[in-house]
Amino acid sequence: MATSSQQIGKFVHSLAAKQPTPGGGAAAAVGAAIGASAASMAAAYTQRKKDIESGAAAKAQALIDSIHLEDLLKVADDDAEAYADLQRTWKDSSLSDEDKASIEARALAVPTTLVEKCHSHILAIQEFLPHCNPNIISDAKVGIHQLAGAARAAFQTVMVNKPSVDERKRLHGLLQEIRQAEDELLKPDE
């Protein structure tokens, strides 16, 4: 059953079971979707009359439009499919080296894409924060923290799939930018 069609309780229990999928990659994707949802909700509440007049509502709508929750949830299913194919490469001696390389590349691409999506969403939310309805800004910040955790989790899945040194460095750079965004949110009020 597609992750997006499952109740959260069923997904959580499936994740906890002794079975190969869903696994860490799916957990990261669902975490990202939850974070993006929290930020979207904050943007949805930034639609008051004064938000429309100040232009904040337009910025909020732009954030909402940039977040595609189904795409994030689909990563959970893509991860399960990529892992199943990867397991096949360990057992099926009839696969060509070219087929194995293609499957391995996809297993790496799925979590890499999730790190990139989390990074992109975090930057968009960070840009929106000064315009957010102050009564619900904590939810937008929750979105950043949840997406940051999802990005770090996806990075661990990337690492299992043995990326090149250059790719590791590039993704680590994205994680550093994410950390900076989080650090800004965690500064005590002065």
Rank of each mutant, 00 (worst) to 15 (best):
Q19N: 10
L69P: 02
A36P: 01
F128S: 03
V12K: 07
S120H: 14
F11W: 11
L185H: 09
A124C: 04
L175I: 06
P188R: 10
E53Y: 03
S138E: 04
A43K: 01
S96N: 06
E190H: 08
A39C: 01
K169A: 15
E127V: 07
E98G: 07
S40E: 07
A44P: 00
E81N: 10
D99G: 02
F128P: 01
I34T: 09
D97W: 00
S66R: 02
E184Q: 13
L175A: 11
A56H: 01
S66T: 02
L63M: 01
A42S: 14
H121D: 12
E190V: 11
D85R: 13
E53L: 15
N161C: 09
Q180C: 03
A58E: 14
L123G: 15
L108V: 08
C118A: 14
V142R: 12
E81Y: 05
A36F: 01
P20Q: 07
D99T: 10
Q146A: 15
T3M: 14
T46D: 06
P134A: 08
D183Q: 12
A101P: 01
A32S: 12
V110L: 09
E81S: 13
K141D: 00
G24M: 08
F11P: 09
L123T: 07
I122M: 11
H131M: 08
K74R: 14
K50N: 10
I144D: 08
K49T: 13
L147V: 04
S5C: 08
E116V: 09
L73V: 07
I67W: 01
H172R: 11
A44N: 15
S102E: 13
F11S: 12
D99F: 03
A80G: 14
L147K: 05
H172G: 15
H119A: 07
D166W: 00
I122C: 08
D71R: 12
T3D: 05
